[in-house]
């Protein structure tokens, strides 16, 4: 077995994972892409373990450890996503910008502090996109700064 084959497959999988993490908007899809990247690393570990003929099997043991850590990561990540969904009614990463720098101009669909009163009147809406239909106030960061 040429070692180039698993190495190239793993490099392609890693790049696909990078694309998914950067391009996807849903948090669960981002978690799936992280899993793809971890699997690329696993394939590399197994291939190089076979190539080097390690007597301690460090590559395969480390693959098992990575699999376990990936399982723990998915568990905690999904708990975080569910808590987020419970509090925000959305898991779209584009709307979760509270830790971002104050952008120049209003970010579309950003639920901010000033919309709290309006939001509590519209308690049944699932989408926080159009929050500016209360009294004509723009949905930007009105009185934040």
């Amino acid at each position: 077995m040429h070692i180039v084959y698993p190495a190239v497959v793993s490099a392609l999988l890693f790049s696909i994972g990078v694309y998914g993490v950067l391009a996807r908007r849903n948090t669960i899809l981002v978690l799936m892409s992280v899993e793809l990247m971890l699997n690329a690393v696993n394939l590399n570990l197994v291939a190089f373990d076979v190539w080097l003929g390690d007597r301690l099997h460090s590559g395969q043991v480390l693959t098992l450890f990575v699999i376990v850590i990936a399982a723990a990561e998915v568990g905690v990540g999904l708990a975080i996503v569910l808590a987020l969904y419970r509090n925000r009614r959305t898991v779209d990463l584009d709307y979760l910008r509270d830790l971002a720098e104050p952008a120049d101009g209003p970010t579309p669909g950003n639920p901010t502090v000033t919309d709290q009163a309006q939001t509590q009147r519209h308690t049944t809406d699932d989408q926080p996109v159009e929050r500016d239909h209360g009294d004509g106030r723009p949905a930007g960061r009105g009185g934040k700064s």
Partner: peptide, 21 residues
């Protein structure tokens, strides 16, 4: 399902793939 930075993600992923391969 795709966010707004999809072109940048394509560029970054292609660059990563090219360099790694």
């Amino acid at each position: 399902l795709d966010s707004g930075n999809r072109p940048a993600a394509v560029v970054v992923a292609l660059a990563t793939a090219a360099i790694l391969v």
